[in-house]
């Protein structure tokens, strides 16, 4: 730290003790870097990015208030991430764990991802130890419960899920300084889950909604995935992919980013086969270009559009 004027050290001192430079905290805590990376690495997701910036601002200010002795309570940071499959919930949860760690809201910052099977047992007395073991692993970090609504099975009144729910509710209330819980799942089912388990709703501070991607965003995601593996789309390849996305979306089990990743894996296999059958010497350009035909060979172009009879 530099003291600007030697003549009035006392004034500078008291000002420093009683003030916090948020901008500097933002840079030095590494939060700025995380948010910039989030902006750069994740395509689209505008509302999610905005929401995370808001949460980051809250965390920074709360931390500053704590340093100045203005805040004493532990913030409730449990969240819910709702959105369709492949919209980036798991990806964002990882960054969130990192963010919370940099700001000191969790001590280690690990992300422990679980589903019902990891928490709920098969017989009486099996559930509590299972849930508690998972919680032990998540202490100091973030517990991410994917498809949380499967914990609650109203049709079976003796379902062991209820036991896991009760332990979770207790920990979410009493150990807020030890771990952050993120519940994730599809929007409509989560809504029903919260309605029948108001305890969860009241313990969750931030609801983050993940929208479906628009076609150009999915193309962007595809190009980014390919670039990381040193592939690229030819001009006609990009056009073909756009058409592919339009059709794939109409079909069942469409999973946004994940469908794209799977489609690219298959098109790489077709490209490999095409090059192999052609034989001869290959340039690095040829080895790394996905052509239209690698995409157009997909079943999607011959299958009927959803709404028709044979759609599985």
């Amino acid at each position: 730290m530099s003291t600007p004027q030697q003549t009035e050290p006392a004034a500078a001192q008291s000002a420093a003790e009683d003030a916090i430079d948020l901008r500097r905290e933002y840079e030095e805590s590494g939060v700025a870097a995380i948010l910039d990376e989030l902006d750069r690495d994740l395509i689209g997701l505008k509302p999610v990015k905005k929401r995370i910036r808001e949460i980051a601002a809250l965390l920074l200010v709360e931390r500053a208030r704590k340093q100045l002795g203005l805040a004493h309570e532990t913030l409730t940071l449990h969240m819910s991430f709702t959105g369709n499959p492949g919209t980036g919930k798991t990806t964002v949860a990882l960054r969130m764990a990192d963010l919370l760690h940099r700001l000191g809201y969790v001590r280690r910052g690990q992300l422990v991802t679980v589903t019902r099977d990891d928490l709920v047992g098969q017989y009486i007395g099996h559930t509590a130890p299972k849930t508690k073991e998972v919680l032990k692993k998540a202490i100091g970090g973030v517990l991410f419960i994917d498809e949380a609504y499967y914990l609650y099975r109203p049709e079976n009144e003796r379902d062991y899920g209820q036991e896991a729910i009760e332990i979770l509710l207790q920990v979410m209330e009493n150990q807020r300084e030890d771990l952050v819980v993120i519940l994730a799942g599809y929007a409509d089912r989560m809504e029903r889950f919260f309605t029948s388990n108001p305890g969860f709703r009241s313990r969750i501070a931030h609801h983050v909604e993940f929208p479906d991607y628009a076609d150009p965003e999915l193309v962007g995601i595809a190009e980014q995935m390919l670039e990381r593996q040193n592939y690229r789309l030819s001009e006609s390849g990009r056009e073909a992919l756009t058409r592919y996305i339009g059709r794939r979306r109409q079909q069942p089990h469409f999973a946004n980013g994940r469908s794209i990743r799977n489609a690219l894996d298959r098109s790489r296999m077709r490209q490999a086969n095409r090059l192999f059958e052609r034989g001869g010497t290959l340039s690095s350009e040829e080895l790394s270009t996905i052509e239209a035909e690698d995409i157009l060979a997909s079943r999607v172009f011959t299958m009927q559009v959803a709404g028709s009879e044979d759609e599985t």
Binding site: Q110, K136, I139, G140, G141
Partner: peptide, 10 residues
């Protein structure tokens, strides 16, 4: 697979 000492202390 525990990350934080608090889990052990509890």
């Amino acid at each position: 697979d525990v990350a934080d000492a608090k889990a052990v202390i509890d």
